[in-house]
Structures are given as C-alpha cells and as structure tokens.
Design a protein around this nucleic acid. Structure first.
Lengths: 190, 190, 190, 190
DNA sequence: CATGAATGAGAATTCATTCAT
DNA sequence: TATGAATGAATTCTCATTCAT
C-alpha cells in the first residue's frame, strides 16, 4: 500500500476514534507508520484528507448496495438498502457525521454532492424502475425522493447506533418500522 | 443575563461563524464580555458547552412548533412542522450539524436523547391523535415513527440549505416532495 | 476548632498528599470547609502556613518523646527515641521533608532553628545526663551531637519509609542497626 | 552539548536560584537557549527533570570520592568523605534539598534508590575492606550502615550550611564532632 | 521522496487575589 | 469577620509546520 493510501486509512481510524477536534496529524502519521513531514507531501492539512475519506465511504456504500441488493421486488430492495446502510453506520459509527462536518468546515463543501452523486444516481435508477413497472407512486420526484430516502435511512441508523445505542432487538424494530414507513411513502404497498 | 447564559449565547454565535475547530475559548469569552477564567467556572471545555446549546436549539424548535402548528388537520400540521424545521435550519445553518458532531465528539452523546425527548414527545402526541381520529395508519409504532419523522425532515433541510445550497424555488419543491412523502408514509392520504 | 486551626490541619493534609507545588489554596479551604477569602484573613500565602505546621510537628515529636521515653538507662532511651521518630515519620511521611523545603523557600528559613530548639534542648539534656552518670563519652560536644543524632535518625526513617519503602521486617533490621550505630557513637556500649 | 543535556544544566541553575515553586519551564528553556516546545520532547514537566538532576549530583559525589578519598587508613577515608559531601553541599546548597522534595513530589520516588545505588555500593565496599583488615566492627550490617552514614553526613552538612548557616569555624567544629561520632560508631577507634 | 527533531505562535488552563455583599 | 464569584496575569502545553539531512 502506498503512503497516500496509508495516510487515508490511518486518518479514518483516528478520526473515528477521536473526532475531528482531537485528531492530530502526529497521531495519523504515527498510526500510518510514516514520518511527520511525509504527511505534507500528500495533504495540506488534516481536513484536506476528508474528501478522500468521503470517497472511500461512498464507495463502500455503493459496493454494499451492488453486492447485497438483489434484482427482486422493490420492497425487498428497500429492505436490503436499509440493512446495507445500517451495517455500514454501525461499522463506521462516528465517521459519516464527521465527514459532513469535516467537509462543511472547509472549502470542500461543494464536493459533497459530487461525492454522493453516484449513490443518488443508483437510487434514482431504482425509483425509475419502480415507476416503470408500476410498483411505486408515479407522481413522485425521483431526484428529491432519492435524497430524502438516503437522509431518512442514514438518520435512522445514526439514531439507532449513535444516540440511542439501542440493543439488537430495538434496532430490528426500528428497521422494521422504517421499512414500512418507506414502503408506504413510496406507495409500494403490497 | 447571568454569566452562564452569556457564555452559551456567545458560544452559539462563535461556533456558527467559525465551526468547532476554529472556535477558541478566548473568542467566546471576549464576545460574552467576561474574563477568561470565568468560562471555566461553568464549563470545562468548549465542547462541554454543546449540550447547553443543544437544549437551546430544541427549545427553539418546540417554541416554533407551539407557535406555528395549528390544531387543524394532520396534513396541515405536518406541513407546518416541515416549515418550522426548515426555517430554523436556515437560520442556524451550521449550528445543527455542529451539535451532532460536537456531542458525538464528547462524553455527552448520551445526553442527546434526553435533550430531544420533549420534541419526540410532542410528535408522538400528534401521531396518537392522528390514530385516534383515524386519519393515520393505526399500525405504526409511534415511538420509532416520531424519530424517523424528525430525522427525515432535518436531513432534508440540511440537504437543502447546507449541501445543495438550493435556491428558494428548489427548496419549495424539496419541501413539497417531502410533504407528500411523509403524508403517504403515515397513511394520511386525503 | 477555630478557623485558623482548621486551615492548619487542612494544610497539613493537603501538603502531605500533594506536595508543596501542587497544593492550592482552593483545596486547603475546601478541605477546611471555609471560604476562599477567609484564608487571607489568617495567612498571606500557602507557604506562610509552613511555620505553623512546623510547630505542630515539633510538638508532636516532643509529646511523643515525653510520653514514650522512659527514665531508664540511656541505651533504652535511645531505642525509644528511634521508635518515636520512625513512627512519626511513617505517619507524616512526606511532611517533614516538605517542611524543610517549604521553610527554605520563604523568608521563614531562620525560624527553623527556633522551632527545632526544644527538641535539641531535650536531647542535649539527655546527653548531659548520660555524661553525668558516666554512661556516655564525656568528650563529645553535646550541642553538635544532639543535631547529628536527630539528623541521623530522621534520615534513616526517611530512607526506610520514603525511599526504600521497606517492609516491616526490613524496617526492624534498619532500626536495630541504627541503634547499635548510635550506641557505639555515643560510647554507651554496655 | 545536546538539547537534553542543555535542559538539565539549565534546570539545575534555575532550580538552585529560584526553588522548585518559582521555577518556570519558560525560564529553563530561555536559559538553555532552546524553544518552549523542545522541552516537552524530553521531559513532561519541570519535576520530571529531577531524576536526571539527581543522577548528575550523585555522579558529582562519586567523582569527588574517587578523586579525594585516598587509599589510606579508614579513619582518614571517613574524614575525606565528610569533606567531599560538605563541600558539595556548600556548592549546591539549595539543590540537594530540592532533589529530595522534588522526587518525593512525583512518581519518581522509587528512582531514588536506583540513583543512589552506586554511592551506597562505594561505601559498602569501603566498610567491607575495613572489616577485612579488622579496623571496624565486624558485626555491623554493611548495607544499612552505608545508608546510615550517608544520611548522617548529608543531614549534618545541611544543618551546617542551610539551617544554621554556620561560620567557617563552627563548620569545622561540626565536622570534627561528626568525624569522632562516625569513627566511634564504626568501632574504628584508634 | 522521505525523515523527524526542532520550532514557536497561539490556545488552554490555573489559581492567587480581590471585593462587593 | 466571613463569603465566594469573578478576575486576568502568568504559565503550561499543544501541534501544525519547517527544513537540514
């Protein structure tokens, strides 16, 4: 793994553990096993690593969706999507929130939509398919709905794992409720 | 206004303007017009102010809901709720995000649920009423649904104002879509 | 107990526990159960409490000697003296050292000899008696010898309890050796 | 001279001049001619320098002993030892006291024995030789006696120079008395 | 490219001291 | 006398950044 990659991986770990505020470049390089000065050959500051991390994260989500989401009925796909996002949120607990803030704190805010674009595209495609096969409400605006869906699932996952720190059973309940909520919202009722 | 209150107000302003990272205690006290040492009589660090700020914010939301949300039909209430949260998010753009991250970065994560509790209670009440008068899906779990609704509206508002930086028209569209999304999700279709 | 006494007692505890450096007036008054400002009605600084503490300590030693040292043969008296000083050193471990330094750091250095005078007097008297009854070396200078004896016993006690942190058996051995050392030094061999 | 050495030397000077309490890291680094942050690369606090200083001091004593103590009769060696320790105590007046307290105030108390070990070893060797050549009491425990001797001489020197602030003549008397005291204690009477 | 010791500006933090009550 | 909230000067401490190797 080359140095840049090592820095990004290390940064993900340290940011996750300590938060933006308490993360220091010293600790990132220490964990990456490289020298202090080397960091500056690749990034200008700790926040400058954020876009690279965001990309890694979105790729993980997309990868998860491609792997886990079947080509079955839309209801099943929604359910699978919920699981993918919940699982990743659990694994990377703090990170998603950190990314939002990390990016907004810098000149990279604009990058956010660019980075998330493939995810929105993927969901928009899913929605258009649902409309095409007349299983979801044809009236809905796919662009906004895609964003709303992502926001709804992510915020639910954060609720479950970060703030409530729910146990396994509660999480299941929360997911089930979320599933019905989305199904109805999309007019995909069976 | 007592010193503690002055610190909180000043912290809100400085955090909003500079972000967590670049906010210094020096600047908070300067703006609050108190001595450096006085800060430490009330808070142990700048992040320790976060729960107090969160409380202020939730109170603003509740206040807005009490003032703006009528006793009319549920659909109208949902619409009013969307507007209240969107308006506050616009006014305090950075602050909401900051709060999430600020809290997760500290030992105060647990406080989050406590602080938000009154808001969830308010919405649960609204849902129970809707069920009672048979205008929304009686099957739904009011506890989780309340949380999902808040998450959905807040994330949509953040999308609109923070990341997309949408113009007035786009925001209106986004809100409209969100409205229909929620109405359907609650089974409150007219 | 009046406030001044409360301050001295509290200061003894805090100094013993934290050392001079890390002792704060805040902690002294907190432990004494009085207000911050009240301290200044009795002492001008934390070091200004030192002479008062020293007096308390020397009184404890004298009290111990009066109570524990018999009017028996000199060898027995030496032995009892060793035990009194060892016991007090164990109880007030850090304090004696602290007192020396505390006093030297202030304008109160001169007080030291004044405060210790009664102790030296007591030992000088003991030596003179020994000479009178021809049980110790008549050549020795009682003034310096008294100081040397106190220094020898105190430093041995500090060695035992502070630096070596010896167990009960080692302490006994150390004391026994010290006893023979002093007996021979005084020419009081049986 | 490397930075660490510079810090230790500077710390010795500042501690001697100002005492522990009033010594600041700022002044140590200023005198050492290094940057503020550099101090923290080598020591975590001003008290953390103490063990290093103690080592320097013990080395000075050992050096003095090696240089000044002849291979003559034990009585002469004792006398030379007294002079070495008195001389160093005079030169570094404050420092010795500071070291004791400085070390006891930290987590480094345990180090004390390790640092003093070479000195004790040296004296033990001297005692064993005396026993071998039948000039001192063969019954005595060399380990404890070595410690008692060091304590006795050091405390006498501190008495003379620090507390009593005796003039040259008085010091001579004190030393003479101390000499006889030790000679008798060791059973090395001529 | 890579290193890591050294830097020093700037922020956090402490705490003796004051003073209105 | 007694109080204790408030002060702010003085210090500690951190850490991004540099640069000679």
């Amino acid at each position: 793994m080359d140095k840049k990659e090592r820095i990004i991986q290390s940064a993900i770990e340290v940011f996750s553990e300590k938060g933006i505020e308490k993360t220091t470049i010293s600790e990132i390089v220490k964990k990456a096993g490289i020298a202090q000065g080397t960091f500056y050959l690749y990034f200008s500051s700790k926040l400058a690593v954020m876009p690279a991390i965001a990309e890694v994260m979105v790729n993980k989500i997309l990868e998860g969706l491609h792997k886990k989401v079947s080509s079955g009925p839309i209801q099943q796909q929604i359910n699978e999507m919920i699981h993918v996002i919940f699982d990743l949120t659990e694994t990377y607990k703090e990170l998603t929130k950190l990314l939002y803030t990390g990016l907004t704190q810098t000149q990279y805010v604009g990058n956010w939509e660019v980075i998330y674009a493939p995810l929105y595209d993927w969901i928009e495609e899913l929605l258009r398919n649902g409309i095409k096969y007349q299983v979801i409400d044809p009236e809905l605006n796919v662009k906004y709905t895609a964003k709303i869906i992502v926001g709804t699932i992510e915020s639910a996952a954060e609720q479950a794992y970060l703030y409530d720190q729910q146990d396994a059973n509660a999480v299941k309940e929360h997911q089930k409720e979320l599933y019905h909520f989305l199904i109805k919202a999309l007019g995909a009722n069976t």
